[in-house]
Nucleic acid binder design. Structure first.
Lengths: 168, 168
DNA sequence: TTTAAATAATTCAGGAATGAAATAATTCGG
DNA sequence: CCGAATTATTTCATTCCTGAATTATTTAAA
């Protein structure tokens, strides 16, 4: 049974949160549930249509926006994942001929990773469909509500970063 | 380098999204980035303070709210993860004496999983701190904004579920 | 300049997560 | 009642991801 089938007929954790849960907790559960729902849908679509995965797609997206390529460390920071993870994903994409490691002439410790021409073609095709999916999934919210939601999320994200320094 | 250190000094994917990205896509990237940020913080705190993980905590939370225990399948649906995954997490928690598999007398295919007394104690302690963390992380948003954000997320979640049926 | 510290990338062990296949038990149509 | 389909759980191969250790290179300090 896949996530879609489960999600279709069962309330998730957030939906069942008891009434006396505090506001912050309810907000977090709802945020998490909503994101998980969209994320698993995107993963499934990427798999079905392109036999690829979200991390592969994400790495290619980073490279697509950086035509000169990025170092492994830069990729790690941008994707917010560990360096070891980037090594693995890059290995896989390189095996498939979608990206290429190029030694940096300035610094022999670093590899610059670039999309190959096949990688660029492949990413363009995926990105077009991907955006259609997202519009289909999130576009139902009106423009006004979308903007408001994005704004509130922006404020929340800033809060989260702030809360790192002090108390926690 | 961990996610916290990376996040602290580098804009993430959402922050860098180019201005001409469409609304829906921006919304999704921001939703994803915000959730990832909070999630990795919670994972880190669970690890640091209780040497446990989010999936273990989640499974125990489900059981805490269901004093009669839940079947593996019920856990799988509520946690929105695959059955194989639930088997693994349950195995680990059972090894640690926090949960217990009880054969169902009505149906010999099913196991009911319950928290042991030690599991209940352990979960109570974790839940108290967990809620403090979440309030510290998300509570900075005022009550009004929190409610508004939760409401918008609720609408988005409904949209997402709806978009499953039709085109996409 | 030589050594020490810092940085870039990789490797590795271990926990998650998936989907598919296998096993076992139940239910249902005839 | 019997066999087929369904349901519950586990197992397995694969991918992802982390944090720690390792190797190689660069930078900085003495």
């Amino acid at each position: 049974m896949n996530a879609k089938a489960r999600a279709a007929r069962q309330p998730d954790a957030e939906t069942r949160a008891s009434a006396d849960d505090h506001d912050a907790l309810r907000l977090w559960l709802r945020l998490f549930a909503t994101t998980s729902l969209i994320e698993s849908r995107v993963r499934r679509l990427l798999q079905e249509r392109f036999q690829t995965t979200l991390p592969r797609f994400d790495l290619m997206a980073q490279l697509y926006r950086a035509p000169d390529g990025l170092s492994m460390g830069e990729l790690s920071r941008r994707m917010m994942v560990s360096g070891g993870n980037v090594t693995g994903i890059t290995d896989a994409l390189e095996r498939d001929g979608l990206v290429q490691r190029v030694p940096d002439p300035e610094d022999r410790r670093v590899f610059r990773v670039r999309l190959t021409p096949a990688g660029r073609r492949s990413f363009r095709a995926m990105a077009t469909e991907h955006e259609r999916w997202i519009v289909g999934i999130c576009g139902g919210l009106g423009a006004a509500e979308s903007r408001q939601l994005a704004a509130l999320l922006g404020r929340l994200k800033a809060q989260v970063r702030d809360s790192e320094e002090d108390g926690r």
